[in-house]
Amino acid sequence: MSKKTPQTRAVTMQDVARHAGVSRTAVSLVLNDRFDVTLASDTRERVMSSATELGYRPNAGARALAQQRSDWYGLVTEIVTAPFAVDVIKGAQDRAMTDDKYLLIASTESDPAAETTAIERLLEQRVEGLIYAATWHRGVSVPDIASEVPTVLVNCFDRDGRFPSVVPDERAGGYRATARLLRAGHRRIGFINLDPGIPAAIGRRQGYLAALADAGIPADEQWQVTGHATADSGFAAAEVLLDLADPPSAIFCANDRMAMGAYDAIKERGLRIPDDIAVIGFDNQELIAGYLRPALTTVALPFEQMGARGVDILAAITAGEPTVTKRVTVDCPLLERSSV
């Protein structure tokens, strides 16, 4: 029988004290960065040297319990493997690390019971605050337990108005896409929108209409059709626009999936993009926008920036700074490719 190797015992403060020839209290003061108590510099040096030599690691759980803070933020999201969720996590983590903070991440799979459990587990780890992130922009109901610590919503907003939120500026994005087509000389601009009622559909249409109004172009209802966020619905909606007696010379699609469908409808008519008709999308789903031919000019959702801004607000709240704005919008940039 093979001999079982015993697990290495964790190095304790008492071990460091014995090695450095000082009291355990002195070790605690040094390793917890307590400078309000006077200690000789050589004592501090001996403690730090001994801790390094022995491989001492602080007990984060015990320290968090003692200090009632952990240097951790919790991030709760529906699906951590979604491409956009990864960008939110990156933005939040990069910003948190500038303040020596880190993220504990919990996936809830859109299950309300799992949300409450995830938040409870994060609170048990003494997180200093929570980021609650959604994979698509909408109003949400956040579990009451989130009120126990500062909480900021990202890519969603609290229906009850309890928590500050960071959301994309949908209207500005819709305006920017339409203005780009206007600058290219188009005056007949079709719009394939998302299902009505959701914030993205409302804001992107408002931007589209505002850009036309600023250019002195009447908004023609027949140039505005509704899709359902899929490539198939984009194809069908583009067919409706192309069948008009006076079809548009450009189409603004409220997401990249519908733009992909519009590409197929346009090409089936023997038309060329962008020579015969221009197309702009929204979202910047890179596996679509970057690989369509020609590559799709689109408006990007600023997930990474929203994650970072959420941590900015969370850091301010945990530092005791007042927050005036309940809902912060982040700009949606235009990414030029080859479809206009």
Rank of each mutant, 00 (worst) to 15 (best):
G320N: 11
T318C: 13
Q305F: 01
A295P: 00
A316E: 15
G320D: 12
I280A: 03
R327K: 14
T323N: 06
I288G: 01
I280P: 04
G310D: 10
D276F: 02
L296R: 08
L296A: 01
F282Y: 15
G270T: 02
M306L: 07
A315Q: 14
L296I: 02
R309P: 00
K326M: 14
M306N: 07
T298I: 02
A289R: 05
T298W: 06
D276N: 06
D276W: 04
D276Y: 02
I317V: 15
T318S: 15
D312M: 03
V328R: 09
V279Q: 09
D283K: 07
A295E: 12
T323D: 05
P322T: 12
Q305C: 01
R327V: 15
V299I: 15
L301S: 06
P274I: 07
T323Q: 14
P294L: 05
Q285D: 13
D312K: 03
R269I: 04
V311D: 07
I288L: 10
A289L: 02
A308E: 08
P302D: 10
R293H: 13
D312F: 03
I288D: 01
D276A: 02
I277Q: 01
R269F: 06
K326V: 07
A300H: 04
F282W: 05
G270V: 01
G320C: 10
A289K: 04
A278I: 08
A319M: 03
F303K: 15
G320Y: 11
T297A: 11
